[in-house]
Design a protein around this nucleic acid. Structure first.
Lengths: 144, 144
DNA sequence: TTTCGTTGTAATTTCAACAGTCACAACAAG
DNA sequence: CTTGTTGTGACTGTTGAAATTACAACGAAA
């Protein structure tokens, strides 16, 4: 089970907006062409990023833009914006373990904090990487 | 998108085997009752754990057992055993980004090492937690 | 105010993976 | 040879991702 491609597409989109903001009008069509996905997918994604106050989208005339400084947007912000995971839990737990069994009755108390630890390790790392960092790499690669 | 419940069920199963190994014959039926899932699900899971040399399963007479010391089984071992993720990649990438676009052409080079960093952070944490650690918590909770 | 390109969103479809279930041959041991 | 169990194929239901179609709402410029 993998984390959906919405996350990588979202980062792609942010990089593309930043890269082309002075040369192109940033429409869903344009972004869709860069990522090679359907424009509607991009529009929905932009809505999610907009709700998270990461981008602005102009209706009618069209065009998307990044709303805040790239150093203030972490990968975790993007991840949380586009991955609508239930309760924010990375791990799916089996429902209704047997309450009559000592293991089944306690399995949540046994495992929950461990799962949290693991998820936190991942989220901490994501919090430490900003779009500015990623953009710096992008600039180096695109120039050359 | 969440990581499938096979992982939490697998840990549940290992805890249950260890807890009841002296008092019950550990059949798929028995484990299924504790986790409250179908016995066939347990059997298939045990096959995956067996391939990873984490458990042994006796055919015919029946019964599952843990093959190695609990301190030598990490959560990462269990995770890798039961999560058949393609290439072991946690993040799903959108296929075929546009090669004619400077961003599309470079997006993998831009992001891959960041995604690896994040995945490594998670896996490192999983590697540091053993079934023995989890079992210690289980014993405390079950006794009381 | 009409036109035009775009966004926002609903509806539908396709597809893959998870998970549940049934069925039964293969097997081990008494 | 009987019994209980495993190993596995086959089928089903369900869920979510992603693609696609369609169109009303909208903004700006002609």
């Amino acid at each position: 089970m993998q984390i959906s491609s919405r996350f990588t597409i979202a980062v792609h989109v942010l990089i593309a907006i930043e890269t082309f903001k002075n040369d192109h009008k940033i429409t869903s069509e344009f972004l869709a062409s860069s990522a090679n996905v359907n424009p509607t997918v991009i529009r929905r994604l932009l809505q999610q990023l907009k709700k998270a106050e990461i981008v602005t989208v102009k209706r009618g005339s069209g065009g998307a833009d990044i709303e805040k400084s790239l150093t203030e947007i972490t990968l975790l912000d993007v991840y949380n914006a586009v991955e609508p995971v239930e309760n924010g839990q990375l791990f799916h737990f089996h429902e209704n373990p047997n309450e009559l069994c000592p293991v089944g009755r306690n399995i949540h108390r046994i495992m929950d904090h461990r799962l949290e630890e693991i998820q936190n390790a991942m989220e901490d790392k994501m919090r430490r990487i900003t779009i500015a960092d990623v953009m710096a790499d992008a600039n180096k690669l695109i120039e050359s």
